[in-house]
Structures are given as structure tokens and as C-alpha cells.
């Protein structure tokens, strides 16, 4: 074969392969979404369109309460993690001091240690100090998981900030807080927004930590789904799962508008 035809063949093969991977990644999600509109309770084919399961979700107070709890926990986590994380990123970027490397390394345990270990450790500790199980415990845990993501994303954005801008503002007589607010924050805003969306996604999708920390009957949506799956499939779970996937994908698509995901260099 001539080199050109060969490269065309590999080009086609490569695209077919990529298509197969995307099929593998999306097919089960699409099947689930389709089944949530199927009238049969036991996923029987042929397919008959029905919105019954969505109507049932709408009437199911248990699911609605869990959904509301998941959303407001995620909102609280987003606010706290974004504020604390941005403050820490600014300090890590602006100041040079001994132990800075160590502080950066300390961000990895919450990401790298399996959640099963972190979650059970939190359960033990929170019981020991009297926080116990429940929504406050879940929030404390989620913020700790979201913080490293916020710091990493905001720090990456700060790296593109021109320090001379800050010096210029300062030499024109701006107070440090003024410099931060009027010069730096507008520049890093896309990074902060992306970090906030990551924090929301981490909390909203978090299952393992919530599972160990939430009180029975007072659980978040993923915990409720897990319990329902283990008791036996119910088609309402299909419907609410489809909604969850849609919500988190939309959140991440918006986040992608603000960050490059390392995709472009």
C-alpha cells in the first residue's frame, strides 16, 4: 500500500475505534434513559412509550425530599468549598514560604485514598466527637472532598495571571484588598466558576461518603437509589437516575465552557 492510502485506512480505523469507545460509554446510559420511558415495569420489550414513572417520581415524597436535600447540600458545599478553596489558592500562588510543597501534597489524600476508607474514618471520628450522622456530617465530608478540586482548578487559572498587573495596581496606590478585588478576582473568575461547578458535581454525585454519614430516612438521592436497588429494581429509580445524569452532565458542560479540561495546549 502507498503511505497515503495507508494513513487514510488507519485514520478511518482510528475513528471507528473512537466511535466504539463512545458507544461503550454512552449506550448503557441511553438504554437506561429509554427504559425510563418504557411502560413495562420489568424492562420488557417491545417498547411502549409512557411517562408513568416520571409521574410516580413526582408523587413520591421520599424521592422528592431526598432530591431537595441533595441539591441544598450541594449548594452549601459549593459556597463553602469555593470560598475556602479560592482563598487558599491565592495564598499558595502569592506567597513563598517553607512547607508550601507539603501543603500542596496534602491535597492529594482526599482524592487518592478510596472513599470507602475516608468515609468509614469520618463516621468513626464524627461519632467520637459528637457530630454523629446526619446532614451536618455529610456537608463537612463533602466540602473536604471538593476543596482539592477547587484549589487545583483555581491555582491553574492563577498561573496564567500576570503578576506585573498586581504590581502596577499596587504602585498606583491600591490597597492589597483592592488589588485582589478589582484586578485579580475578575481575571480568575472563570477558574472560580469552574471550581464551584466541580464542587457542586462532587457533592451532588457523591455516594460513598454520604452513604456512611447520612442518617437512615434522612438520606441524599444517591443513597436512596442504592438502597432501592438493593431492595429490588423499581422503574421509578430509572426515571430519577435519568434526571440525575442529565443534571450532572449539564453542570459539567457549563464547567467545560470555563475551563479547558487540559484539552488544549
Amino acid at each position: 500500500m502507498k503511505p497515503r492510502t495507508r494513513s487514510r485506512v488507519t485514520g478511518i480505523l482510528g475513528r471507528v475505534y473512537l466511535g466504539a469507545i463512545l458507544l461503550f460509554l454512552y449506550a448503557p446510559i441511553l438504554v437506561m434513559a429509554a427504559m425510563s420511558f418504557n411502560a413495562s415495569e420489568f424492562y420488557q420489550l417491545p417498547f411502549t412509550f409512557s411517562t408513568e414513572w416520571y409521574e410516580r417520581v413526582w408523587r413520591n415524597d421520599l424521592i422528592l425530599n431526598a432530591a431537595a436535600r441533595s441539591v441544598w447540600i450541594a449548594v452549601v458545599v459549593t459556597v463553602v468549598a469555593t470560598v475556602l478553596g479560592t482563598a487558599a489558592s491565592v495564598a499558595l500562588w502569592r506567597y513563598d514560604f517553607r512547607g508550601k510543597r507539603a501543603l500542596q501534597v496534602l491535597l492529594f489524600p482526599p482524592i487518592a485514598i478510596p472513599w470507602l476508607i475516608t468515609g468509614t474514618a469520618m463516621l468513626i471520628f464524627f461519632f467520637g466527637v459528637g457530630i454523629g450522622r446526619g446532614t451536618p456530617a455529610v456537608i463537612i465530608g463533602h466540602v473536604a472532598l471538593a476543596l482539592p478540586y477547587v484549589i487545583v482548578v483555581v491555582t491553574a487559572r492563577l498561573a496564567t495571571f500576570d503578576r506585573t498587573l498586581e504590581e502596577a495596581a499596587r504602585s498606583l496606590g491600591a490597597r492589597p484588598w483592592m488589588v485582589t478585588r478589582a484586578v485579580m478576582l475578575p481575571w480568575i473568575a472563570p477558574g472560580v466558576i469552574a471550581g464551584a461547578l466541580f464542587a457542586f458535581a462532587v457533592s451532588f454525585d457523591q455516594f460513598v461518603i454520604s452513604y456512611f454519614l447520612s442518617e437512615p430516612g434522612d438520606s441524599t438521592l444517591p443513597v436512596l437509589i442504592y438502597t432501592a436497588i438493593r431492595k429490588g429494581f423499581t422503574p421509578e429509580i430509572n426515571a430519577i437516575s435519568t434526571i440525575i445524569i442529565a443534571v450532572s452532565m449539564v453542570v459539567m458542560l457549563i464547567a467545560a465552557r470555563f475551563t479547558k479540561f487540559g484539552g488544549e495546549r
Partner: peptide, 11 residues
């Protein structure tokens, strides 16, 4: 970045 529990359930 979407819910891992739900993706496992879809399988």
C-alpha cells in the same frame, strides 16, 4: 463526571 452509582445501575 456524572453519577457513578447511576452508571453502574444502568449496566
Amino acid at each position: 463526571w456524572s453519577n457513578s452509582l447511576v452508571r453502574i445501575f444502568s449496566w
